[in-house]
Computed example of a mutant assay.
Amino acid sequence: MMHDTYAVAQPTRAEIDALAGPALLEFGTGWCGHCRATQAPLAAAFAQHPGVLHLRVEDGPGRALGRHFRVKLWPTLIFLKDGQEVARLVRPLDSADISRAFALIAA
Rank of each mutant, 00 (worst) to 15 (best):
L77S: 00
E85P: 15
L42A: 05
H68T: 11
G21S: 09
A18Q: 11
I78R: 01
L65N: 09
P41N: 10
V90L: 04
P22H: 10
P22D: 14
R91M: 15
D17M: 01
G51C: 08
P50N: 10
D4G: 05
V71L: 05
S95P: 12
L42P: 02
E26K: 06
C32M: 07
R13Y: 14
V52E: 13
A37R: 13
H54W: 03
G62V: 06
G83S: 07
A40R: 10
A107I: 02
E15P: 05
F69C: 00
V90T: 01
G33L: 03
R63W: 08
R56L: 08
I16A: 04
P92T: 07
A101N: 06
G33E: 02
G83P: 12
G60K: 03
H49P: 08
I78E: 01
A20D: 14
G62I: 03
T12C: 10
R56M: 14
T12Y: 14
A37C: 09
V90Y: 03
L55I: 08
A47W: 14
H54R: 02
L73K: 11
Q10G: 03
V86F: 08
A14R: 08
A106F: 10
M1C: 08
F102K: 07
L93D: 12
E26P: 02
L65C: 12
L104C: 09
C35R: 00
M1H: 07
A64I: 05
D82A: 04
A103P: 10
A107D: 15
A9L: 12
R70F: 13
L89H: 05
R67D: 04
G30S: 00
E26D: 13
A20N: 13
